[in-house]
Amino acid sequence: MKFFLSALALVAPAQGYLRFGCGTLSVQRLDPLVEPGAIPSAHLHQIVGGNAFNATMDPSRDIGNEATCTTCSFSEDFSNYWTAVLYFKAQNGSYIRVPQYPNALLGDLQGGMTIYYIQESFSTNGNQKITAFPPGFRMTVGNPGNGDGANPGLRYTCLQNVMTRFPETAEFPKAPCPAGIMAIHHFPACWDGKNLDSANHQDHMYNTVKGAFQPAGACPASHPVRVPQVAYETMWDTTKFNDKSLWPTDGSQPFVWSYEDSTGYGTHGDYLFGWKGDALQRAMDSTALLSTGLATQSVPQANACKIQPSVVEEIDGWLSSLPGRSAM
């Protein structure tokens, strides 16, 4: 059946943002933004969105026209969204991948993420023009090699139940979480209006994010174009690892990102725009998103969209080292 409209727009009036689910497209070591053409890339990613995703994403090509299916509930969204993958590290040094589960209101999607495009806040789109991204646009948030926890848009929530949203922490939760861990990524919402990308995939954007879905700050003259604030929520089902006897004997928490980060400070996300035609602009111009006319698809249709892996390696079961990394 169709995704419930209540799952697409929540909280107060149905205005001001898009909220929808995207199931898992693939889990493999590819990163066409940071390591274009590399097969494999340095660490494992979970990827959602359109099936045009590959190791080399040419910015001159419009993936909104090239993809033929998407794992997202809006069938005109062929964008790609990806993050690192969470693993549990056992006391003997071996690793096993932590499963994902969809947000409670998004049906039976297979893994994936909840995606947001926020105009200003949950209850209003304000009075400013929100400009949709152009074809070829891409950006990243966070830094796996130099995270410090200072970005308020990169956070974790220790889920007491599937609807928990606060408090947020900059680092991994330090105690077992009854319903798992939610990883949160808020992208900048100010663009220079000129460049589809930059050398570090971030300088063409300016970050005024305050975290916790607060309205972003004003855009500076250097980056004057207000674009939708993109955000991801990923639900990691850590519950089968809640037995503290499985945790490190020094009392530290046992989860690591797929690039061997046990603090959580290096969390990061990648975004590549791929909405078809003017679909996203129509949504951002609307004050009542339920009447935008955006096409949706069923959960089975979203789950059926997959790509063949370019990298064939073991990523599941107990591993002596993380994919792409030597045993330590």
Rank of each mutant, 00 (worst) to 15 (best):
H186E: 14
V209I: 08
H223N: 01
Y206K: 09
P228K: 10
A212E: 11
P228T: 10
A221Y: 05
S222F: 03
C190S: 04
H201I: 13
D237T: 07
K174E: 03
E171K: 14
M235D: 14
K194M: 14
Q214S: 05
S222K: 02
N195A: 13
A170S: 15
N161F: 05
T169W: 01
Q214V: 04
T234C: 07
A216M: 14
E171T: 14
P176Y: 09
Q214F: 01
Q160S: 15
F213V: 06
A212C: 07
Q229H: 00
S222D: 06
E168F: 14
G211Q: 04
D203N: 07
L159S: 03
K174Q: 11
G217V: 00
F172E: 05
Q202F: 13
T208G: 01
G217L: 07
V227Y: 00
T164F: 13
H185E: 08
P228F: 04
P178I: 13
C190H: 05
P215A: 10
R226A: 15
P215E: 09
N207G: 06
T208K: 00
V209F: 02
A170V: 14
G211N: 00
N200H: 05
D237W: 08
A212T: 13
E168T: 09
D203Y: 01
M235Y: 12
N195D: 15
Y232C: 00
N200P: 07
A170N: 12
D237H: 05
A179G: 03
F213A: 03
A183M: 10
T208Q: 12
K174A: 05
M163Y: 15
C219Y: 08
A179I: 04
V227I: 13
A231C: 01
C190R: 09
V209Y: 07
N161D: 14
K210N: 04
N195S: 13
V230D: 01
G211D: 00
I181Q: 02
P224W: 12
Q229K: 00
G180V: 11
D237L: 03
P176L: 04
K194V: 15
A231K: 00
A183Y: 06
Q229L: 02
R226W: 04
F172D: 06
P176C: 01
G180D: 06
Y232A: 03
N195C: 10
K194Q: 11
E168S: 09
Q229R: 07
A218M: 02
A175I: 10
P173C: 00
H185T: 02
A212G: 08
M163R: 15
V209D: 00
P188E: 02
L196M: 08
Y232W: 07
D197H: 15
D237A: 11
N207T: 12
D197F: 15
S198L: 06
W236N: 11
K174V: 06
H185M: 01
K174L: 10
P167A: 14
P228S: 06
R226F: 11
A170E: 09
P188N: 01
M205H: 06
A170T: 11
Y206W: 13
R226C: 08
M235F: 15
D192N: 12
A183F: 10
L159D: 01
R165I: 13
Q229C: 00
A175H: 14
R165V: 15
A221I: 08
D197Q: 15
Y232R: 12
F166L: 11
F187Q: 01
Y232H: 10
E233F: 12
P178H: 13
T234D: 12
H186R: 03
Y232N: 07
H185S: 09
V227A: 07
G211P: 02
P224I: 09
Q160F: 12
R226P: 06
